[in-house]
């Protein structure tokens, strides 16, 4: 079951790169996100799975689809005519190289960390509070930059 999910993640991500129609590429990226969210659920990380499905497969894909519909289809870029076979050949070479090295990678030996019985809310707000300040800073930066970009467009459009 896990094999099917992981293979689905890889295959739909590859479709997102190879498909020519932009909308189909974004939808296949969305399906890949949903499958990755289910993988997170099975790894006992439900909150990461929820975030992956609702934010990545939801919010970011909606942003992409809004942009594509704003730009319209007359902005399709003529991609270089490299056939799909080149990608598949490169991917197979890459897979062979990785599989040869993958069993030589160091095995992870965990020292058991105490205090991991805390809930996710406490970890996020109490142990990593500086990260929350960081998230606030990132959101401020994003909001102000978007406002600046939008107002520049309005000023140049007049």
């Amino acid at each position: 079951m896990d094999v099917i999910l992981l293979a689905g993640v890889i295959i739909f991500a590859a479709f997102a790169v190879l498909l020519k129609d932009m909308l189909k590429a974004v939808i296949s990226l969305m399906i890949s996100s949903i499958m990755l969210g289910i993988v997170f659920f099975k790894l006992h990380a439900p909150y990461a799975g929820v975030f992956e499905i609702s934010v990545v497969a939801g919010l970011i894909m909606v942003l992409f689809i809004m942009t594509i519909s704003l730009i319209g289809s007359d902005a399709d870029v003529k991609e270089p005519a490299v056939p799909v076979a080149v990608f598949i050949v490169l991917f197979l070479i890459f897979s062979v190289v990785i599989m040869l090295r993958i069993f030589c990678l160091p095995q992870v030996s965990h020292q058991l960390m105490s205090g991991e019985q805390m809930r996710i809310g406490e970890v996020l707000w109490i142990c990593r509070t500086f990260d929350m300040v960081g998230q606030i800073s990132v959101i401020f930066a994003g909001v102000f930059v978007l406002l600046a970009v939008v107002s520049a467009r309005r000023r140049n459009g007049k």
Binding site: F40, L43, H44, A45, Y47, A48, F51, E52, V55, V56, L59, I60, H110, L112, M113, E116, M118, R119, I120, V123, L124, C127, R128, D131, G134, Q135, V138, I139, A141, G142
Partner: peptide, 19 residues
């Protein structure tokens, strides 16, 4: 072992990606 800390990190990475 570290699954809650890992989830906190992944949530933050996803927020950064959105912005």
């Amino acid at each position: 072992q570290n699954i809650t800390t890992a989830q906190a990190l992944v949530i933050t990475v996803i927020v950064i990606e959105v912005c």
